[in-house]
Design a binder for these strands. Sequence first.
DNA 1: ACGCTGCGCTGATCGAGATCAGCTATCGAC
DNA 2: GTCGATAGCTGATCTCGATCAGCGCAGCGT
Lengths: 242, 242
Amino acid sequence: MIENTPLVRKLGAFVALSAPELAVLASLHKRRRTFVAGRDLVRQGQSDQAAYILANGWACSYKLLEDGRRQIVDFQIPGDFLGLRSILLHVSDHSIEPVTDIEVTEILAADLLTAFAQTPRLATAVLWAASRDEAMVVEHLVDIGRRDAAERMAHFLLELGGRLTLVGLATKAGYACPLTQYLLADALGLSSVHVNRVLRQLREAGMVTFREGFVAFDDYDKLAVFAKFDPTYMDPRGPLLL
Amino acid sequence: MIENTPLVRKLGAFVALSAPELAVLASLHKRRRTFVAGRDLVRQGQSDQAAYILANGWACSYKLLEDGRRQIVDFQIPGDFLGLRSILLHVSDHSIEPVTDIEVTEILAADLLTAFAQTPRLATAVLWAASRDEAMVVEHLVDIGRRDAAERMAHFLLELGGRLTLVGLATKAGYACPLTQYLLADALGLSSVHVNRVLRQLREAGMVTFREGFVAFDDYDKLAVFAKFDPTYMDPRGPLLL
DNA sequence: ACGCTGCGCTGATCGAGATCAGCTATCGAC
DNA sequence: GTCGATAGCTGATCTCGATCAGCGCAGCGT
């Protein structure tokens, strides 16, 4: 019997996976590996890369411009794929860096493609997961393109809270968050200086406090209104495939 | 025999589709429909939406904030899916508006899911297409987060050129482009006033001229260097599945 | 005990791009 | 033939957030 991992919980919300399907999914998990914070596990431009499933810890995927500017595309939390696109596109268009020390299980490209051929419902489930990730990137795009710094920060902290709640790592009260202000800056397209000021604003407005690795929602509803946070793109609307 | 549509060309670059698989793909194409420019065909928040394949014309997908600000996420050109995420997530997280009058073929959610179950390689091919789209959204995110207005515009025009070249609608000399400065503004997270100024800058620098619905690359290489344009994320690296 | 480095924090100044207010040209409706 | 509407274009001004320069503090290696 396969354990109740975050990944299974996530995919299960979309496709009711049968026992044989779960077995195939389990068989994908190869070596368990650990990586230390800060040392890239996927590098932009590498080809024929393996993919991973994050079991423990936080990571971030980012892109670098050659002059050193960097944009963090997304953070990954337990249950998320790392580098799935690297497999499908043959080459990694981004880098992935562990934010904390992490534990992952490796997945080989060939195994994954074989599994898709044998268990089409699994392929559909993964397509769903990829779509959900894309929806988050899209929301992130709206953040950076059309929300000002404070709204952006507020929205980001709420979204993260929502994702963590799905895997049991957050409540409406708050969550533990290992991100530094530098990481937030690179994710939100701001300078770290400005991140600091914005966090102060939100704290002084009594909406949210981010301090010493913990995000505390002081007034969740007020924050949600302020950020124009609409969670429909996040929560599963019940299984699509039975 | 299925015609050589842009979609088949696109998917074929990734998965060598067999005759029966092509037949399944063809059977997905239901009613052919047309929509006039400016009238939404998918609306943010709608559920149980159909998806479409764009046969002719240009469209754009965008998200709206309730105060009217809008962010265009991507433009679609012939061969692209419209609203695939609406099916997979049960609800549409974005709207889609035809930029020109367009022709599409409708695809029903149930048909698509059935097709995936019967022809797993098709599911994989669609997963690839979705990943490619996601890679473009990600690049777009870097644009808006970390490139200044001129680089952003330059990069955008080059990327669009690359995509159009894949379906035979552009060359290194330029391409026909029905986008207005207002649409560019909403896509690039700028004001239309600033779009105008940036286009002038690029024109006066002798790099690219966008006038009367036509983008002309005056000095393609100079533009590519200026924009730090790295096309690896776009071009197919040969088929993954044989 | 010392310095070093990473992280959070703050004031002063600067600049890219928004906003405001207007202009011209074109095109279709009446 | 004129009246809107739409698209492109421009100058003047304002503002949000970047940049520069610096602060204190905690952890850590020597």
